[in-house]
Design a protein around this nucleic acid. Structure first.
Length: 412
RNA sequence: GGGGAGGUUCCCGAGUGGUCAAAGGGGGCAGACUGUAAAUCUGUUGGCUACGCCUUCGAAGGUUCAAAUCCUUCUCUCCCCA
């Protein structure tokens, strides 16, 4: 039986592992349970969570059992790893609420039928922890000297680290221990910034239970332009279609840098490695084909085939000069406007600022002045222009800001 | 608890009574170039009923014709001592 680790390795998922050979052997012999944690600090998962999710899916396909741990308890504290400042502490209610909605998203991704995977919330055991007992049973295994040596803490020692954050590692280690005890969890996977916390959990489990468990980290995925994955000017790229439309999601992937194409196809699609290598060979304009495939696959995984098809159609329609009249543009985000309003005419700036294209009238003014605004491919440069029925085509207006941001206005 | 340094527009960071909607950089947006890339160059970057008006420089008051800049109190952060 293939352990599944080779797949991860071939696809570039692996940065560090506590003991790759041993783990590979173990996973080839039997199916194991493994876990990844998700912090419910927001209402939705975002693209930054895709790497662990994809890794879990791959391992599940190889026959192993994923435990998705929603950090309802740990989120109350805030992980200092890789951050320069303390995270805002949120209310218990808010975090519980976030946990449930994130749970739904992960469920879409991992097969939870017949106990093939479990969804857990560490609030169950962290919430009722007794401080004295915890210190005595768990705290004694941690050496402050050692912890201070970790890179993550070193950094924070410069700027300041509160005691509550310093404790984070103990709680995360405790999670691993509990999961090992209750579910026989043998492996924790996570981003490379979690390495210290993961190793600490491995140590704790060995000390308390004398069980050898493993840790595995993914490389921190950055884009070729050095920016963090999943961030746009407008904020995070959420998986929730209400926060980030499938069309925009498609476009996000469609617009990645050339240099990232092959890497991302490996990490974020299920296409075979051979197939991806072929796509990676494309050059020049051709590479756009690979980007489209990436965008399509990702959108399909997250939003389903139907939405992915629509997004692809809509993107093609919007970016193919004329011609394709009867294509479905319905995936492009839209607002509706009353027929009567158009009879009298709406000022360009007003119209644009009503859409997600411009957040204020001033921004719309700038856009128009600088020649970045057009309606149904007709450039508008006069800020006093009144938009009326003469602009309407197919009962709608296709607004464009810059070269690639589209928005529809439907007349009703 | 004592002493010191600070909180400036999306971020970093100038500004210490009018010439400040606030230098510079980053980021963003737009234009040119392109392949719905990258790099580069240029413009732009609080809001509005726009040659004027309104809101912004941690919070609340006060001094002044006039404050981001001065005074008072509060609050938060960092550093040193205990």
């Amino acid at each position: 039986m293939s352990s599944g680790l080779e797949v991860l390795k071939a696809r570039g998922f692996i940065k560090q592992c506590t003991d790759f050979e041993k783990l590979d052997k173990l996973m080839s012999e039997k199916r194991i349970s493994f876990y990844a944690g998700f912090d419910p600090t927001g209402k939705s998962l975002h693209v930054g969570h895709m790497v662990p999710l994809m890794a879990m899916a791959h391992l599940q396909r190889a026959g192993h059992r994923p435990l998705s741990l929603v950090g309802g308890g740990t989120a109350l504290i805030g992980d200092p790893s890789g951050k320069t400042e303390m995270r805002k502490i949120q209310t218990v209610e808010k975090i519980q609420e976030n946990s449930t909605s994130m749970k739904k998203q992960i469920e879409k991704f991992i097969d939870y039928s017949d106990d093939k995977a479990l969804m857990l919330n560490n609030y169950e055991w962290l919430g009722k922890l007794n401080y004295i007992e915890f210190l005595r049973d768990i705290g004694r295994h941690f050496s402050v000297n050692r912890m201070l040596g970790f890179e993550t803490y070193k950094m924070r020692l410069e700027t300041g680290l509160s005691f509550i954050e310093f404790n984070y590692q103990l709680l995360q280690s405790y999670d691993f221990l509990v999961l090992n005890q209750q579910h026989g969890c043998m492996l924790q996977i996570g981003g490379d910034d979690q390495w210290g916390n993961i190793v600490a959990g491995v140590d704790l489990t060995r000390r308390v239970e004398s069980n050898e468990v493993f840790g595995l980290t993914f490389p921190l995925v950055t884009r070729a332009d050095g920016k963090k994955m999943g961030k746009t000017e407008k904020g995070a790229v959420f998986l929730d279609p209400d926060l980030f439309s499938p069309y925009d999601y498609f476009q996000y992937w469609r617009n990645i840098a050339d240099a990232d194409v092959e890497k991302f196809l490996l990490l974020f699609t299920f296409l075979s490695v051979e197939e991806i290598k072929e796509l990676g060979k494309l050059e020049g304009q051709e590479i756009n084909r690979a980007k489209e495939i990436l965008a399509y696959e990702q959108t399909r995984i997250i939003h389903g085939k139907e939405e992915a098809d629509k997004a692809k159609e809509a993107a093609r329609a919007a970016f193919t000069p004329q011609g394709s009249t009867s294509v479905d543009k319905s995936a492009i985000p839209s607002i509706t406007v009353d027929k009567a309003e158009l009879e009298t005419g709406i000022n360009v700036m007003d119209l644009f600022s009503r859409t997600a294209l411009c957040s204020s009238r001033g921004e719309a003014r700038r856009l128009v002045t600088q020649g970045g605004a057009s309606i149904n491919e007709v450039k508008i440069t006069d800020i006093n222009k009144s938009i009326d029925f003469t602009f309407v085509e197919d009962n709608e207006l296709l607004l464009k800001a810059g070269k690639k941001r589209y928005f529809r206005v439907i007349v009703s």
